[in-house]
Design a protein around this nucleic acid. Structure first.
Lengths: 199, 199, 199, 199
DNA sequence: ACATACGGGACCTCCCGTTGCT
DNA sequence: AGCAACGGGAGGTCCCGTATGT
């Protein structure tokens, strides 16, 4: 796959979460990415919307990888969630409160209009929930509760990233880190199956 | 005060939460509001940004009023929070998942660029937190914890509205309604001062 | 006559020669003049064109007065012309090369379009020529030659003001001062009637 | 080089000398030139100012070519100057007094504001003076005097074109044709080097 | 794969004139 | 005399998609 195309997508993800979908133009994109402006239509025949969908999918893959990573390294789901929130907060702070959720901005902009982008963002959120839920289930939480808890986790993280960006402080991230960790820890297990605790 | 200007602001709030700041054009606005296109510059000499700031402030006032209303009618903060979440969910559903938070979209779009809009959104969130915290304090929760809990409430509600819009379901709202209510109820009080419980 | 109206006209003359007729807006004018924006239409029912005509006429009166003054004070037409050029050059330099001819800019902009402004500028030039010619005639130059010489003087002064403004130097003014003076002096008189030489 | 861009520039020169810089809109331009309105920004990324600078430069090249041509064909500088003035007058009359100097209008409009256009007009005048001066020098006039005389020629021609346009008569052009020719002829030569007199 | 050019249209800004109310 | 508001429209900028050559 073309390296130009990939850099466009990665840059688009960055610009979308800063200025949103409508606030990012092709010109801004190619200037930021340093990619040739002449072959935009070649790489994205579907136009800007195709770029948007690709950027959302790219962001989603990255987030799923991050989830897997943080759960793999943590000794318990609660710890994983706490770590995840804290890492997100630090990334946010390091980036001068620019690198929040790469999907949320586009999601809010397009959920009432474009179907392709709207379903791409919905798919992203679903994937993240599923990834979290899988780890909760693996820790002994019943599927139904695991799904709810995963949704709650996503909700809280997204809300915290929003509030943290706006208030330009990572305090909200630290706040939800503990809250979520406690909440996850308090969830009753059917058969405590310490999936990753033997290492 | 001009009624035209007010209708523009109210309409802008609606359009901003649907399509965001950059996705809403003056033309769209004046067509939706039925206001004259020619006097835009008269009512908002500061341009679109001035409209945005006014719309955010307007939305903020409305939200503070809603908070006051729901806390005034409820017998306890926990119940108020539960009701708030459920009402928000129903409003969202009734509006075909359009009427989410009127500030969040603009907040995410502009938090990394325009200072006027960014500070307007920050101010809005601060006002909401303060309003919630006041009611928690009135119920006997120490100021510091009240502020944290208020922030957590805001975070959770915002996150839930985001996820609910994207998934086109009010389930997330119902989920956080109970979670938040339990959370608020479980918070220890110094001197349980049942402010509004006697009715 | 309203003092507001007069200040508008005087300010318009200044702005017109800086930025031209089309480059000067009502808003710019009222801000520069400090006059009320609400009563523009009251003072100039004919709109911007009426303002333009008034400003041209005002400028023309001022120029005629300047011509009379410089010829009255000088001992000969040649000296008057020399002095006139030098004074114009100094005024130009003092004003940072802004205060050139108050009519020329509008004249060039409108000579191919608006009839009212075009005839106003034509009238202004005619008045100036007539004023100069009168003094030349009074010095013994036959009417026909006096008219030609007056036109030549106007032409040269206008051209010099143009070139001086563009090159941001008063050299062109000094150059034409001597050239014109010599030219006027060399013109044969029928009966040298030293009109203003005995006082 | 794009033919569209060239036609835009040539048309801009025409419109600028009729209505000036601010009086000429992009819409007017593209309609007059028959060029696509959509690719304006492609050909002139610097906006209208870039068009203005290009039009001034284009006009300057044309004028230099005209100067070279008229001096090449004439047997003496005096005759060249006389011819130049007369040709300009005829062109002016034929065009219904529209085609005056293509630079003067913009020069007056912008000499007190935009630096890019102001320096473009200054450069144009400098080039014309240099071209004239070169021919005067070639005829035996000392460099310093040649430069002055060239400036005087430019001044007089510009002034005459202005007055002729305003008065809608080519008389001023004929008047200065003889005046300038006499003036140039009267200038003393160091070594009369009749450069082009052998034909 | 990339570049140059086309092409319509939407963007926000601001202009200029008018209307009714002080 | 002054003013706030109206009201249509044009201002220049820029967007997004397409077509044509390399």
């Amino acid at each position: 796959m073309s390296e130009t195309r990939e850099r466009m997508i990665a840059t688009a993800m960055q610009l979308f979460r800063q200025s949103g979908y409508h606030g990012t133009s092709w010109r801004t994109l190619v200037e930021a990415a340093g990619t040739p402006w002449g072959s935009v239509h070649h790489h994205f025949p579907g136009g800007k919307e195709e770029l948007g969908v690709a950027a959302i999918a790219f962001a989603s893959r990255g987030m799923v990888a991050a989830i897997e990573s943080v759960f793999a390294e943590a000794r318990s789901p609660a710890e994983a969630v706490r770590k995840w929130c804290r890492l997100s907060g630090e990334q946010l702070e390091k980036s001068e409160f620019v690198e929040g959720c790469p999907v949320a901005t586009v999601a809010l902009e397009t959920s009432s209009s474009s179907s392709a982008l709207a379903s791409a963002t919905k798919k992203a959120f679903d994937e993240w929930c599923a990834a979290i839920a899988a780890h909760l289930e693996a820790d002994g939480i019943p599927a139904k509760r695991a799904a709810q808890l995963a949704t709650l986790t996503l909700i809280t993280l997204e809300g915290a990233l929003l509030v943290a960006r706006v208030s330009r402080s990572k305090q909200p991230m630290l706040l939800v880190a503990d809250e979520l960790a406690q909440r996850v820890d308090a969830e009753p297990r059917t058969a405590r199956r310490p999936s990753k605790r033997r290492a």
